[in-house]
């Protein structure tokens, strides 16, 4: 390990380690890129890919992000953007859960879909995307439908759960599982020009309050569909919440829901 540290010290440009050197260190010392990233950050050095983070996210904070494990439930409209942003942010481990494959009607908004991967599983696409963007990130692809029964096992050990589901009853099951695991959950939902975001900390019942009237499990999205920009907006707000929760910074969006209306460009907060 000391030899690796010496190697990294000699290769550092200031405190930055170029990607090529990270790859070279992994090859020379028989380690994974993730393991090398951990050593770099623990030494107080910074993988050069994160240099534009550093005035917002310090190297110490980048290490906390690297050591975190975030689960994304649903890899469609919201999930695709969430996984993209978590991967670029440098979250060390991402569990991606979705049972579906890409279909043509996903192409208008789902970031991970393309004309080349129609028929491919969404979590496999997520895995390949993460490997391409940031191979130091470990993405666990789980091609399975999340539910109350498999939830505890599936999400054991994660630090934060991100709701990117498209079903209200399954969201409520996810909320139950997050409560049982004592893990915060960042909720997002979209429909047409509209969306909402909320963070539920352990012990809170925000999800039950939001959906206490739900009868058939769908909202306005059933009559509106979803255009390209709405999931991108809501997913980004969710990832900002995740980043804050990991770092213990700022004010989380808990005990309230932010409603976003992109048609009239209005943001309204509902408090509980």
């Amino acid at each position: 390990m000391e030899k690796l540290r010496d190697f990294l010290r000699t290769q550092a440009d200031g405190d930055l380690i170029a990607w090529q050197q990270q790859v070279s260190a992994a090859g020379s010392f028989g380690m994974t890129l993730s393991e090398v990233e951990g050593v770099i950050l623990e030494m107080g050095l910074l993988p050069a890919r994160y240099q534009r983070n550093r005035k917002t996210i310090s190297t110490g904070q980048q290490l906390r992000i690297f050591r975190s494990h975030v689960a994304v439930i649903g890899c469609g409209g919201l999930g695709g953007y969430i996984i993209e942003e978590l991967t670029r942010l440098g979250v060390g481990r991402i569990t991606a859960v979705d049972p579906d494959v890409f279909e043509e009607h996903n192409l208008n908004r789902q970031l991970l879909s393309s004309t080349e991967n129609l028929g491919q599983s969404k979590v496999e696409a997520a895995y390949l995307r993460a490997a391409k963007l940031n191979p130091a990130v470990i993405l666990y692809p789980m091609k399975i439908a999340f539910g109350r029964l498999n939830g505890l096992e599936l999400l054991q050990g994660v630090d934060i759960i991100v709701d990117a589901l498209d079903s209200i009853p399954v969201r409520l099951e996810l909320s139950e599982v997050s409560t049982a695991l004592n893990v915060p959950m960042v909720h997002g939902a979209i429909g047409g020009w509209y969306g909402q975001v909320a963070t539920q900390l352990p012990g809170e019942e925000t999800m039950r309050k939001i959906y206490n009237r739900s009868i058939d499990g769908k909202g306005i999205e059933k009559g509106l569909g979803n255009p390209s920009f709405t999931p991108a907006v809501i997913a980004s707000l969710q990832v900002a919440e995740v980043c804050k929760l990991i770092l213990g910074m700022g004010t989380p969006l808990n005990n309230r829901t932010l409603h976003i209306n992109l048609l009239d460009m209005e943001f309204d907060e509902i408090k509980y």
Binding site: G74, G77, A164, D166, R171, Y211, K218, G219, E221
Partner: peptide
């Protein structure tokens, strides 16, 4: 009065 939103 707000409508229910549930898509993803």
């Amino acid at each position: 009065i707000f409508p229910l939103v549930g898509g993803g």
